[in-house]
Design a protein around this nucleic acid. Structure first.
Lengths: 207, 207
DNA sequence: AGCCTTCCTGACCATTCGGTCAAGAATTTT
DNA sequence: AAAATTCTTGACCGAATGGTCAGGAAGGCT
């Protein structure tokens, strides 16, 4: 009988094929969004037949769900990592750098997330109002404590976080536009972005 | 014979209906992207029958094309408006404010654009590498001249522009996430965002 | 009024889509 | 090797989708 999703106690073929399918699906979903993607596209991308895809996964929704679940985990992690420190400015800038690296190394995941949010987040709205909101609230309080201690400039912690999210993810989500404006991909693209963002957030945070 | 697109020398009904359709189509396309949207959805949203939609427009692509064309015009305008000034910091911050107001007042247009870019900008890639790139290059040189004159801090003009685009559009494109994190829409949402961005860019630009 | 043009729609069509199934191929187990 | 299990696919199905068309309804003009 066909098993789905789980990566536990499976045969070699199952592990390989599910990964192959998820990788292909990530390509497709991150480009066209959920409704704009088709199982046929995923099948072609994965080099498998459509029924074979459906042998490993219950349906289109399931594949998408697995990808989103994986994504959310890795999405929360960097923010969780930000903690109290003697040098909160560097702590925040380290978070910025980490987020930018993720935009560089996992652009498909970022675009999958962006597509989902743009379309009203129908599949992950509970994760947004639940875990994400709780974590963000918690970190906003941490930032507020730094403000109160006079270690960083007084600003709205939530909007600071939004600025970090938007500026870093921009390089993944709007990659096409960035390329169109800057011209052919140059290798120092991300280094320049990192330098700019570091300057910007240090200036913003300086008390 | 059915006319499409143009808003010139048309009957009253033509003007009303095409606008009605474009408005409905903007709702649908901005939410689901091009491939995820259907003519039936647009028809229902517009309160018209599907054949009636196709009486006024040649097809799904045409409607989408008209919306994108309108969008690009209004998209370039604020940036064009930024010009040389004795107080470049205020000039740039005025641009930020203008962009934020557009995110507040025209979120559907912003999301339509975001969807198009996310999906690889298939319909507007020429506008990006053409007019948008030229305008951005031109304004980047203006910013560079301010740097050379020592009026603002030395930074990468292009990445500064990206930061402005991303932070402001975030409030339209990621509206669902912002709401999820901040809780029910409060009226001062945009005022707080405006204050934060003003602080951030002033700090970033200070020589 | 009567005539002409514009506007509108039910019925229809070809294609695509998500998904099923029976039966055969490959692999693993005994 | 035989048996049992897992894997794969061509053919198929019902629903949705983009789009057409003939003919009728409504609006404008004299």
């Amino acid at each position: 009988m066909a098993r789905a999703a789980g990566t536990k106690g499976q045969t070699r073929i199952q592990r390989e094929k599910t990964e192959q399918i998820l990788n292909a699906a990530l390509n497709v979903f991150s480009t066209y969004g959920f409704r704009g993607s088709t199982i046929d596209q995923i099948a072609i991308e994965a080099g498998l037949s459509k029924p074979n895809i459906l042998y490993y996964f219950d349906g289109k929704d399931t594949i998408h769900g697995v990808l989103l679940a994986r994504l959310l985990e890795s999405w929360l992690e960097p923010l969780e990592h930000m903690q109290d420190s003697d040098d909160p400015i560097s702590e925040i800038c380290a978070y910025v750098t980490r987020k930018l690296e993720m935009a560089r190394d996992f652009p498909r995941e970022s675009r999958l997330f962006a597509n989902e949010i743009l379309q009203g987040a129908p599949h992950i709205i509970d994760d947004l109002t639940g875990p994400l909101r709780a974590l963000t609230q918690h970190k906003a309080e941490l930032i507020q404590s730094w403000i109160t201690a006079g270690k960083i400039a007084p600003l709205d912690p939530h909007h600071l976080i939004f600025s970090i999210w938007s500026t870093t993810q921009h390089y993944a989500d709007f990659d096409v536009q960035v390329n169109a404006v800057l011209g052919p991909q140059s290798s120092d693209r991300f280094e320049n972005a990192a330098a700019h963002l570091d300057h910007m957030f240090r200036a913003t945070l300086k008390p």
